[in-house]
Amino acid sequence: MIELENVGYNYGGGELLNAVSVQLAPGSFHFLTGPSGAGKTTLLKLCYGALNPTAGRVRAFNMDVHGLDRDQMAYLRRRVGVVHQDCRFLDHLPVIENIALPLLVSGRELSHEEANLQELLNWVGLSERAHALPPELSGGERQRAALARSVILSPDVIIADEPTGNVDWEMSQRLLQLLVELNRMGKTILVATHDLSLIRAAKNQVQARVLRISNRQLQLAGADL
């Protein structure tokens, strides 16, 4: 699905990542962990093409991400659902329209997707809040809405950046549950988190691999958690 080959990233002030190689196989579940500022968000951005590596190659769906023009990049974003750290909504539109935004911008007929949309809202537990504006939502509701938006186009890969960052333990369990369900449906999942107890909780439910960024390198942290 997504393949990083000797990827390095240099943000001008110094090297953040060096010789990172990883493959996200179809249907796999990966956690990405590491201390704050280690480059978790950067690595995720490299995966969905928001950043270009300064060394090495990133391949997504067998295409070199570096060679994509802006339109091809837009099509790539439709195949990769991203849950941003700070969610990123259009604050003047209600939740339901924000969740449907990927359908709208990809030219789908919204009236045909009405049932799917309702089902998705039920699944993330936001049916009651469908017509609230994003600033009126709680942290957990925002994260669930962002997750719903990221999966509405039924992407093959879902990348989530600290989806449980601002929510309590119960809510993070609920979000994890949703991600696990998506993985069981065959989606490839990559979640960045610094919350080790979340990773432990996931290990009971799903075959998850843990990647740790340490000293600018990516290591497979296996059984020690």
């Binding site: 837009a74 099509y75 909504f89 935004l101 186009l153």
Partner: peptide, 16 residues
């Protein structure tokens, strides 16, 4: 700019 960024994020083409 923020709206444009969100639209790009969810896969909107520049033409849209």
């Amino acid at each position: 700019a923020q709206v444009i960024e969100v639209l790009r994020l969810v896969g909107a083409l520049d033409s849209y």
